[in-house]
Amino acid sequence: MTDPITVSSPSEVLELDLDKCNGYGNCVFAAPEMFELDLASNVPILLKAEWSDGEREALAAAVADCPAGALRLRKRDALG
């Protein structure tokens, strides 16, 4: 088991769980500004460590579109 890869905006945290990822690439399709598919490993690469309000809609679509449930967007807690 590996810990999810996380990146954050001021209010939210995006988690990418590579144990769950099945390499569909839907996130790359929904949010090309945020994700790229590594063709050697077929897992997504996070292109940015943060996102703007304008990019949030695409990011939410990427989370919703993931058939594997490997992406999660959650409120940032006190520990960040």
């Binding site: 569909y24 399709f29 579109d65």
Partner: peptide, 18 residues
Amino acid sequence: AAGHLAFGFGRHQCAGAL
């Protein structure tokens, strides 16, 4: 061709796609 629907999309997207 990214975004094509040959495998379906979302919840029931072909589990054997990769």
